[in-house]
């Protein structure tokens, strides 16, 4: 799809979210709460006693962002099936070893999961949502994402070598 039109659609969804929920889009909150839920199942005492997850209560999954995350998956699945784009694979450069790609995906995931807790949001909840509201901190966050990304890009380029 034309990226500008896809972006416009995304912007309209965000606008609806502001006007209906009173909050923008978010994705990392859902993942973090799933993490908290998992830890709750394994170590219930330690989780409710911990300072950060503890403030989410005994049922961290009872939160609108968890449902939104489920929606993102569902909407994405619908669109991918519609476009016949579902394919089970580990995306990487043709010459890149799969272990390198898997390791970078995991390491990057850990960093992203950590960073989005620190900044209380990710590209959706902080950069896109806060950017649309013209919030100072969110715009600074967005610039820093690109600064960090471009600064690191050279070091991890091998995973895309064909």
């Amino acid at each position: 799809m034309n990226p500008y039109l896809a972006g416009t659609l995304l912007g309209l969804v965000l606008l609806v979210s502001f006007l209906v929920l009173g909050a923008g889009l978010g994705a990392s909150g859902g993942i973090a709460r799933a993490g908290a839920y998992l830890q709750c199942c394994l170590l219930p005492g330690a989780t409710s006693a911990s300072e950060y997850f503890g403030s989410w209560g005994d049922q961290p999954l009872r939160h609108y962002l968890v449902f939104m995350f489920a929606g993102v998956f569902t909407g994405g699945l619908f669109s991918a099936v519609l476009a016949n784009r579902v394919a089970f694979k580990l995306e990487r450069g043709a010459k890149a070893p799969w272990k390198l790609r898997a390791l970078l995906a995991l390491g990057g995931g850990v960093i992203v999961g950590f960073a989005s807790r620190l900044a209380a949001g990710c590209t959706s909840g902080q950069a896109l949502t806060g950017g649309a509201l013209l919030l100072s901190g969110s715009l600074v966050f967005m610039l820093c994402i690109f600064a960090g990304g471009y600064g690191m890009a050279w070091f991890v380029r091998r995973q895309w070598h064909d």
């Binding site: 970078l104 995906a105 995991l106 390491g107 990057g108 995931g109 850990v110 960093i111 992203v112 999961g113 950590f114 960073a115 989005s116 620190l118 900044a119 209380a120 990710c122 590209t123 902080q126 600074v140 966050f141 967005m142 610039l143 820093c144 994402i145 690109f146 600064a147 960090g148 990304g149 471009y150 600064g151 690191m152 890009a153 991890v156």
Partner: peptide, 12 residues
């Protein structure tokens, strides 16, 4: 958070 996020973003 943004700098870290960017690093994680480009890695993964």
């Amino acid at each position: 958070g943004g700098l870290l996020f960017g690093i994680g973003f480009v890695m993964s």
